[in-house]
Design a protein around this nucleic acid. Structure first.
Lengths: 224, 224
DNA sequence: GTCGCTAGCGTCATTCTGACGACAAGCCGG
DNA sequence: CCGGCTTGTCGTCAGAATGACGCTAGCGAC
């Protein structure tokens, strides 16, 4: 096993939808290597920690967000031999989806950036971010994860704006309404309605128990 | 970084369809720990190797199969603190799909087992196997990966048997035929037909350039 | 030839979706 | 108070895709 010695880190792709834009939480590095550059939050796995434990701890330390209550899943591992100048470091990317406004405007030690306007990132974090964004986009098709981006309770329009922001498309409100309200367990209706704001008050919903969306809500196939 | 020291292995879930059964390549361990038990093939990542390089090398060593030409993708990482009694070992699971008959009946140093009749496996390999099988089942829905299980050239019936074996369902041959032949780029027709065998000769196809299947071919949603 | 088998075409009803029209129910400015 | 604006919600209709299934084509076995 000599030579097969790695340090293992967890990197977090924390996504939210702010101002109708899919955004990612980035931190500015204050230590070498890549000091001063933007990077995904993350850190080293501790001796007795499992990967998701590390990810949840880093999420809490970096943002104050606690599990359970937020979606967190593993994306994959990145281990190119030259990805870290300090030596052999394997990074395990994770994806977290959090509702808008669950952090202050300026979260602890980080800042929100639209996912397609981050500029260059440290290490191979741009690739990890791209994989996380693509995972999120794909999962909206066949799961109910979009609701994880919305605070509770939510309106159908809020949920639709999530899809529109994540996919970068516009969706017909009437067809979207039909789809999500006719999918059992996606949205649980409450008796309440929005009180203020322009237009007709909207019914408020909570997240339902369903996790899969069948049949799925398909994007147009990415032009090949 | 003291304490954050891992050995990193790659584990392979090599799947094929043999005799209408989804099967996995397993090896019997000859060294401790777990000597004598069945396990996924795999091994340690070498100092200058990337993960997919290691996986491709182990695939070649264990089966004689060479990339390119076979599907290989990363599944995810497994790093529970107690998953290996030798110490902290992070395993990166990979999924490979190979056509039936591309190995001899008894591949080098391994043997095929139906995925739901393996018995217990060493380490946490049962969990990795389960994740690999579920990944394969899901990907048949929205990609053209099923063709990776078929030798070239293939018939539509061979492809249908792959779906039936992987999903454990039966599919109407006529509807299946309509679906796969009307999807541009899934199957490229050739001028040849099967020569021997019972029944009417079938047209032979090669794999087309398409990788995604749109619209997808949906399984019944797993009963929740 | 006739039977059994597999391949592959066509038909029809149902479901789901995209593209709308229409109305409901609040605010706002006169 | 009233008409316009905004947003939410229901309904209609055509087209696409699918599930169920009839029917014929073309081979080997007998």
């Amino acid at each position: 096993m000599r030579g097969n010695v790695f340090a293992v880190t967890v990197e977090l792709v924390v996504l939210t939808v702010r101002d109708d834009e899919l955004s990612v939480l980035l931190v500015r590095r204050d230590m070498a290597p890549h000091a001063g550059e933007l990077a995904l939050p993350g850190g080293f796995v501790r001796p007795q920690e499992d990967l998701l434990d590390t990810a949840a701890r880093e999420l809490a330390e970096g943002t104050g967000l606690a599990l359970p209550g937020h979606h967190l899943e593993q994306l994959g591992s990145y281990a190119a031999p030259d990805r870290d100048p300090r030596g052999r470091v394997l990074g395990v990317g994770h994806l977290a989806l959090v509702p808008a406004g669950s952090l202050g405007a300026e979260p602890v030690g980080g800042q929100w950036y639209p996912v397609d306007a981050t500029g260059p990132l440290a290490f191979d974090h741009a690739a990890i971010l791209a994989d996380g964004v693509e995972r999120a986009r794909a999962k909206l098709e066949y799961t109910t994860l979009a609701a994880s981006f919305c605070p509770e309770p939510m309106t159908v329009t809020q949920l639709r704006r999530v899809y529109e922001a994540v996919w970068g498309v516009s969706i017909d409100p009437r067809n979207f309404n039909r789809k999500v309200t006719s999918t059992p367990g996606f949205l649980l209706p409450t008796e309440e309605r929005t009180s203020s704001g322009r237009g007709r008050p909207a019914q408020l919903f909570k997240r339902g128990p369903a996790t899969v969306l069948h049949p799925p809500m398909l994007r147009e196939p990415p032009a090949q």
